[in-house]
Write a protein that binds this DNA or RNA. Structure first.
Lengths: 211, 211
DNA sequence: GTCTATAGAAGGATAGAC
DNA sequence: GTCTATCCTTCTATAGAC
């Protein structure tokens, strides 16, 4: 008779969650195994029992966080709506996600910059090729109407993403220049305003683009 | 009789330069005093003779790097040319600076995010207030023609800066999605293309903005 | 000012009992 | 699986000779 088993390993999950928080907050170099153990309510020895090294723990966490961010973006852009509608929906949903994960962008970008090899092993599992190809094909007519050629897609996509991501990555730089936005509530309001500002800005630029 | 003195302290300068490189490359937590000493061609003891602690050395370096980036931006926007001309000039010059300092954006943004208090003592010495006020006043007519109110300036300025800064901060994320740009020469070409793309994009969006 | 040598603390990882 | 105790390396910082 097989004994009842807890759905998954609870301790492991608690460790994983604690590690996610600490790494996201402090980065790899700034994170301490002791702090992760404390937050998970266990000791260092047990931490090493589940994840033998800091590297391994970090790798597991990073992969999940990167995928989390990436898949949400892709899923919106894969939907079956017009390009203009996609833009509005993307800014709305993506900015809401980022409001809930304000430190995620700078964490991902910084760690990736220090450790480009982190991407290996994740790249293949991400549907980014799909996205690149399908996006232009699916909206060929609409985009052609805007004078966007396939070669222009990287510049355009980068521009779109930067509207939502950059303000979070540059949060403290913004605070420096616009002290009013130091207050988190005001910053969130500013980012919610930005949903419409960004969509209008991009759509206007596209519609009136010289061909 | 006063003895002849070398213009400034050479060793100190070498340390400062070495520290700038190492911090910019590895970040505060990842940087090692030993590596800085090696790069400066001295030993750790002498390093501590000039800068008693790592914190102090970092503070000095960070302040200079932040100011360097900031002042260049401000100086362009302070010139006496039309707003449209400023945009083109800004994208041209700023992107060239960033090409020569590709790791600077992610370094500054990340350290600022981990240590917001770094700004104290720098803020007052930066002419950002000046910039904020003068920009809108100087171009009141031109901006009003675009339907830009004073309240819209933060969104607009953030947008402009993100066009040039974000691609460097997100360099490895871009590489992940667009493998062709892994090659530095191609990435630089991509960023030089972006000068015109960005200026056209922003100007088109402004000109046709609904009021 | 510059060096060699080393102190002292912190942090990742393991041994071994329960 | 979980804990206590401890090892060992790395890193910042200092003492002290020249």
């Amino acid at each position: 008779m097989v004994k009842y088993q807890v759905p998954d390993n609870q301790t492991r999950d608690r460790i994983f969650k604690a590690a996610s928080e600490v790494f996201e907050e402090k980065g790899y170099d700034g994170a301490r195994m002791q702090e992760i153990a404390d937050l998970a309510g266990i000791n260092k020895a047990l931490l090493h029992y589940y994840f033998s090294t800091k590297d391994q723990l970090f790798g597991a966490v990073f992969q999940v966080l990167l995928r989390k961010m990436f898949e949400k973006i892709v899923s919106i852009f894969m939907e079956d709506i017009s390009f203009k509608e996609k833009l509005r929906k993307f800014f709305d949903q993506h900015i809401e996600i980022l409001i809930k994960n304000q430190k995620l962008p700078i964490f991902l970008l910084n760690e990736l910059s220090h450790n480009p090899e982190l991407v290996q092993g994740i790249r293949e599992t991400l549907p980014y090729e799909q996205l690149r190809n399908s996006l232009f094909q699916k909206h060929a007519k609409e985009l052609k109407g805007y004078g966007i050629k396939k070669d222009d897609m990287p510049q355009l996509m980068l521009t779109v993403v930067s509207f939502s991501v950059f303000p979070f990555a540059a949060r403290d730089m913004i605070t420096m220049m616009i002290p009013e936005l130091a207050d988190n509530k005001k910053f969130i309001a500013f980012m919610r305003d930005r949903k419409e500002f960004a969509a209008d800005f991009v759509i206007t630029a596209l519609k009136n683009r010289k061909k």
